[in-house]
Computed example of a mutant assay.
Amino acid sequence: MFQVDLSQNRIQKLEEKRFSDLNLREREHLQEWLAGQPDALGEELLIIQKEFDGFADTRERLDLLALDKDGQLVVIENKLDDSGRDVTWQALKYTAYVSGLTKTQIIDIYQQYLDRYCGGGNAAAQICEFLDVEELGEVILNPGNDQRLIFIAANFRKEVTSTVLWLREHRIDARCFKVVPYVFGEELFVDIQPVIPTPEAADFMIGMAEKETEARGAQGEQKNRHKLRRDYWEMALEALKEAGDTLYQNISPSKDHWLSAGSGVRSCHYAMIFGKALLRVEFSFARASAEENKWLFDRLIQKREQIEADFGNKIEWLRLDDKKACRLQYEIPCDGFNRDEWPKHIAWHVEHIQKWERALRGPLAEVNQALKANGGVS
């Protein structure tokens, strides 16, 4: 850190000191500085207690307890020249202790602070003012398990920085601030700078954390859907077995939204579809050759009237001219992920896949034979 002498157009280096060299103490000095100017930590904080010891079955004391603008509790642990090895464990204990504090308890803690150190005041009203809300009923304090930790020291041991980085990887908002005293003549200066995360990395890390949270949520949703589909197909396959169906007798449950079975025509298969909002039976022409798929489709659609009469419903015929494959399908809307509705859904699938296979079996064999007799598509 440098002092600028504009008259000489020069800078002069300030002398870096240790707190111990200056006879400065953690509680009497550093703690009081931060309690009086908490925005020195780079954000608006409301100090609600210092030397807080209101823990059941222990007389341990945390240095400073604060609220941030989201109503989250912030545990602030101060050290001077050396962070020590155990500060993270100490702060984690305190954070666990305060995680159970209720809104009423937090207001009482702050009221005690105001009465003892600030000459009184209305804790509830000041919290409302700090959070920019009009009424206490709108206030949510200490929600969930997102309590925060701030560590302050002139030097951080590797055990501490490694632990803080690990906590941040696990979405716990832990931060480190380096505080260094300087002297110039008779004047004393103190520099407080974030080191984890650095200012440059803070927005990036927040963005990455949000992305990770979104990804984890998506993964969790995906896992839930996979399990749900597997459960449905297990029940559906059991129902088909009980109905004497042989089409799916060698098929295993799947995590996918579809369950297919062979038709006797190469690369063409039957399928049952189970979606969040629909049930479907379909038949796909998925051979490597688009020409063969279209040829089979065109020959089969000539038997449309017979197939639909045998099936008992109008079928959607999708030639899909811009794609290699073709498809036939019949579907209905449903509340697919409502397990209470599954017996009805499964009965529908059992009934319609059997009708589907019976209606298509003969015509498919005919067009497949014609393809073979023709030696493929000419």
Score class of each variant (00 low, 15 high):
residue 90 Q to R: 05
residue 117 Y to E: 14
residue 117 Y to C: 00
residue 128 C to L: 03
residue 130 F to K: 01
residue 130 F to R: 06
residue 102 T to H: 02
residue 96 A to V: 04
residue 92 L to Y: 09
residue 105 Q to R: 15
residue 112 Q to P: 00
residue 129 E to L: 12
residue 121 G to P: 03
residue 127 I to L: 04
residue 110 Y to T: 11
residue 126 Q to H: 11
residue 117 Y to N: 04
residue 90 Q to H: 10
residue 96 A to P: 00
residue 107 I to A: 10
residue 130 F to P: 02
residue 125 A to W: 02
residue 92 L to A: 09
residue 90 Q to P: 05
residue 112 Q to F: 02
residue 120 G to K: 09
residue 91 A to R: 02
residue 94 Y to M: 05
residue 123 A to P: 11
residue 88 T to M: 01
residue 106 I to V: 11
residue 111 Q to H: 07
residue 128 C to Y: 06
residue 119 G to Y: 02
residue 111 Q to P: 11
residue 106 I to P: 02
residue 90 Q to V: 03
residue 111 Q to F: 10
residue 122 N to G: 09
residue 103 K to E: 09
residue 128 C to R: 07
residue 91 A to S: 15
residue 89 W to T: 12
residue 93 K to C: 00
residue 102 T to P: 09
residue 95 T to K: 04
residue 90 Q to F: 01
residue 117 Y to R: 10
residue 129 E to V: 07
residue 105 Q to C: 05
residue 113 Y to I: 06
residue 91 A to V: 13
residue 120 G to M: 00
residue 100 G to H: 14
residue 129 E to Q: 15
residue 97 Y to F: 15
residue 91 A to W: 03
residue 89 W to A: 11
residue 128 C to S: 06
residue 126 Q to D: 13
residue 120 G to A: 10
residue 89 W to K: 13
residue 101 L to M: 15
residue 104 T to M: 08
residue 105 Q to A: 15
residue 120 G to C: 09
residue 99 S to E: 15
residue 111 Q to A: 12
residue 109 I to M: 06
residue 119 G to C: 03
residue 88 T to P: 04
residue 126 Q to P: 01
residue 121 G to Q: 00
residue 97 Y to N: 14
residue 112 Q to I: 01
residue 130 F to M: 08
residue 93 K to P: 00
residue 118 C to R: 15
residue 118 C to D: 08
residue 91 A to K: 09
residue 94 Y to D: 08
residue 102 T to K: 13
residue 125 A to T: 13
residue 104 T to V: 11
residue 94 Y to H: 14
residue 123 A to Y: 12
residue 120 G to R: 08
residue 113 Y to L: 00
residue 95 T to L: 14
residue 128 C to F: 06
residue 111 Q to R: 13
residue 108 D to M: 12
residue 89 W to M: 08
residue 112 Q to R: 15
residue 105 Q to P: 05
residue 98 V to R: 10
residue 127 I to G: 04
residue 101 L to I: 05
residue 130 F to E: 05
residue 106 I to R: 05
residue 92 L to E: 14
residue 118 C to E: 11
residue 102 T to C: 03
residue 101 L to E: 07
residue 117 Y to P: 00
residue 96 A to R: 10
residue 91 A to E: 06
residue 126 Q to C: 08
residue 96 A to N: 09
residue 106 I to Q: 00
residue 124 A to Q: 14
